[in-house]
Nucleic acid binder design. Sequence first.
DNA 1: TAGATGACTAATA
DNA 2: CTATTAGCCATCT
Length: 103
Amino acid sequence: MKENFFENVYEAVKLIPEGKVTTYGEIAKFLSCPNLARQVGWALHKNPYPGIVPCHRVVFRDGSLSPAFAFGGDDVQKRLLKSEGVTFKEDKVDMEKHFFRLT
DNA sequence: TAGATGACTAATA
DNA sequence: CTATTAGCCATCT
């Protein structure tokens, strides 16, 4: 079972520094699979490493968070990100300032 | 094997 | 601005 793709997703997410966020598409692109953004989200859905992978730092392309986040509440992650130094644009993350581009 | 599903994204109304 | 449609493709049943 070589779920390299998933493993890579976890590694990439763990690379995100505090106060930064990234998108599913960016991670997918980083893995050379720009169309697998959904599978990235799926990888986090399965999330074999809860608490180890900061999935709350992964957001939508427009900066919005998941509508059905599973950390205890959608407001929780907003507060969590804000606590890390991330600023918000009403209900969305300020991607212009906190978008972490994987290299 | 085939059909349905989904923590995505872009385009369209 | 929000809502819907369509395309994408690995995983699930």
